[in-house]
Design a protein around this nucleic acid. Structure first.
Lengths: 132, 132
DNA sequence: ATACGAGTTAAAGTTCAGTTCAAGTCAAGC
DNA sequence: GCTTGACTTGAACTGAACTTTAACTCGTAT
């Protein structure tokens, strides 16, 4: 009842090359194989959904890997995970604030009389970027 | 009373190379020059803030350029701008939803008993990605 | 007049997240 | 036994958003 990579890709809505890439970078565990072909358990779809949500939320591959790497019983990686989670929560909050500001600019500029956005005094947000 | 590129970079919190790059890709207008050196009006800081907010919100350089390119009196570019704004508003909504989901996963997983996130049945979000 | 710090350019390099390519393997159907 | 279609690999390529490099030009201070 295993799935070939093409079927997993179809169900998850991404490409086979992306699945192989996720495996290579450690986001997906290497599945069992039958004559070299990858055979997936359908549970992998759930993991992929989480991966995509994390990546879409702006997590890097490395962060997503840490996030997915389980809640190990050993103290150190667990603490590392908690640290990452706390950091990413703060980042998500910051990012949501920025998105809300951008939404408000877009919404309001439908009504704006200014010829250029930067002439609208109200859109001078307090510099609050994520460090590059 | 003009600003040299280094001072603009310092005030805006980015690099001089980024400023030259923004000019090259049309996000910033070419400033006046004195003996080849760029001399900026301090109003450019406001424009840079908007640029950074847009880029941070996930706009591409091209989208940001369209967004900043004014509200031309000619009908066609204005309509193009409105179309972009409407599209990006929808994208921002979608992205905010994803961020909220991710936040909720992060928040909850501090309490979770599962050894792996994908074992928590509650985190099987309905696939709602932005197309690749 | 020469050294300096800050500016200039075009072109090449970097990182991230994949995609594409070339060459090959495998099981099934004709 | 040969074609077909889905899979395999490693390596090269892509596009986005910058950064770095190398060679050069200024104005100013010593």
């Amino acid at each position: 009842m295993g799935l070939l990579i093409g079927e997993v890709a179809r169900r998850a809505g991404l490409s086979t090359s992306a699945l192989r890439y996720y495996e290579k970078v450690g986001l997906l565990p290497p599945p069992t194989r039958v004559s070299k072909r990858r055979i997936y358990d359908s549970k992998v779809i759930g993991r992929i959904r989480i991966i995509l949500l994390a990546l879409d939320a702006g997590f890097t591959v490395k962060e997503t890997r840490t996030f997915l790497s389980g809640y190990p019983l050993s103290t150190t990686p667990a603490e590392r995970w908690r640290a990452l989670a706390a950091k990413k929560l703060a980042e998500l909050d910051a990012q949501m604030t920025r998105l809300a500001q951008m939404k408000s600019i877009l919404n309001d500029s439908f009504q704006c009389r200014c010829m250029r956005i930067e002439d609208c005094e109200k859109y001078m947000p307090p510099s609050n970027r994520t460090a590059q």
